[in-house]
Design a protein around this nucleic acid. Structure first.
Lengths: 332, 332
DNA sequence: CTGTTAGCGCATTCAC
DNA sequence: GTGAATGCGCTAACAG
């Protein structure tokens, strides 16, 4: 592959001049611009990004760690990051964390080794302390979807508790009192917070909390099916169900369908996330919106600023979820 | 940020020795391994990937260009690529092409500049020739979801025509003869091929082809809604509809629902892709499976081999779609 | 406006 | 087993 030297030789100028036209330096004569451009084309020259990064101490890269690229949730997150990266003429290096400490750590270290000046980290496996250490190491690092008090100004998170509280309250306002909850088996903050939101809403409305009304499963359709099956077998006479996320709600609906239980006529269901599938379910799912796209945008914006050494305090860093009314909830 | 020199100084050895322990060279005494390791830890040393890439002429990176990361279709593609990249101890650099020539070109050039030795390109905007040129430039480049005769051994594609043919034939076998088709307005190969598959299946079965039965829209839910609305307004007495993809099928179903037309009782619908939403629709969508995950895996495998200079001919490079039977098609 | 030169951080010869 | 020296491809003084 041709190097800058080859171009210099062919165009009859020095490497410095070539570098100047590559970087559109104002001090470069029309003549040299022409001859260099011609030589570059002839040689199929491609400036080596690694060499540039090495000498200019900047890679123009924002690194992102997501849970799993194949999850549409992270897909929209990545797109949002890409959008602002693009605005700043940067590109994206991506790593999958798979919600596990080891993979998350490896992914982050890889991004650091690659000298990404901006980092947007979605981590559920690493401890607060480890994340804090990484944040201390990389000024441009931002944590998304998680709140860590010691580095609060580097976190963009959602108030999970409030989301679940909202959802449950919405059901209560519609006259429901026998409300089941389908929770996740993943032991992460989100799980606890959402579950607590459900419980607190019940308590606040004078409804007795009964552990029997809570079932668990993996946070996907199968998990929702399993949890709902267990719930049904207890014959609890529920009229509504709140769920950890939309996928579990989907599983829940599917089990109901198989058992001849109509939604929302017999049982109302409410999801969480407002993911891509929510509007495709039948009935269209009433759910809690997780504004991951704008959260990711702001995270990216913030991380770029931090990387530049700028401070920024203008963003709302704790986002509040809102309710998306569709058709899966009916007044009792 | 600490460099290899700092580590050398602190551990009292030369940079060469430090380099040896970093790279686990067999010729490195236990003593130096220890002192160097200790120094690295103390300094929080991170080997600079750019410098390594520069000197070792290898980045260990596979670059991927997708249409849009937020589309779940590409999400599963990326995950598959990541899986084999991981197996080979490589990581992923990702670019969005957005199906446009300019963005696709920029994305590819960025990956080349970053010296990705493997490239997996999903491009619908670039011309065959331009893609061929890129392929000539980068030995480890593979084109996915597109077939270019001149570089056939570097392409992993799906037989779109056959998929659509299969779908249409399936409807015909179920007694349908008045079959509408919802096509895409995107002027790419896939559109033409799938449309042709529909037409050829009709012809092969002695059913007259009527342009009135074909409507167009953007390849998403809205497009499907629009196309179906147009189709319905023509009062064609259709009993079945084949669609360009699952999203358009979703839009189609949604319009039917609003108009009191039941599926599959009144009108059967068949999708294409077997994307994430197919099984969430109501009725669960009968569709054509696009095995993008295994295609992407093989593309990644192939590109890694090509990058190493190995030849490989063992893969089926043209994949054939299969039918996924669910509940949206009923015999007439 | 242009060329010479010195590194950026690292791996790798080649002597020792 | 180790260290000194060289160069990967490029940018940025600096001197002209």
């Amino acid at each position: 592959m041709a190097t800058i030297k080859d171009v210099a030789k062919l165009s009859g100028v020095s490497v410095a001049t070539v570098s100047r036209v590559i970087n559109k330096s104002p001090k470069a004569s029309k003549a040299s611009i022409e001859s260099v451009t011609k030589a570059m084309r002839e040689l199929g020259y491609r400036p080596n990004a690694n060499a540039r990064a090495l000498v200019s101490q900047s890679t123009n890269t924002v690194g992102v760690v997501v849970g799993d690229v194949s999850d549409p949730f992270f897909g929209v997150m990545l797109k949002a990051v890409d959008k602002v990266a693009r605005q700043h003429n940067k590109h994206m290096l991506i790593g999958n964390g798979f919600h596990e400490a080891k993979t998350e750590r490896e992914a982050i270290e890889l991004l650091i080794n690659s000298r990404c000046e901006s980092l947007i980290i979605h981590s559920k496996g690493l401890s607060n302390q480890e994340l804090i250490d990484f944040a201390d190491e990389v000024p441009g690092m931002v944590v998304i979807n998680r709140y860590i008090p010691q580095i609060a100004n580097r976190c963009i998170a959602l108030d999970n508790h409030k989301g679940s509280y909202l959802a449950t309250e919405y059901l209560i306002k519609h006259g429901h009192t026998r409300i089941g909850y389908i929770s996740s088996t993943y032991d992460i903050e989100d799980t606890q917070q959402r579950r607590a939101g459900y419980i607190d809403a019940l308590v606040a409305n004078g409804i007795e909390v009964d552990e029997n009304f809570i079932e668990y499963g993996t946070p996907d359709e199968e998990g929702g099916e399993k949890a709902m099956t267990n719930l049904l077998s207890k014959n609890l006479d529920m009229t509504a169900i709140a769920t950890y996320n939309d996928y579990m709600a989907a599983g829940c609906l599917s089990i109901m369908d198989e058992n001849g239980i109509a939604s929302p006529q017999d049982v109302s269901v409410i999801g969480f996330d407002d993911g891509i599938i929510a509007k495709y379910l039948s009935p269209k799912l009433t759910t809690v919106r997780y504004p991951i796209n704008i959260m990711a945008e702001q995270a990216a914006q913030l991380s770029v600023q931090l990387a530049k050494g700028e401070k920024s305090n203008e963003y709302p860093r704790m986002f509040v979820p809102t309710l998306v009314r569709r058709r899966s909830v009916l007044a009792k």
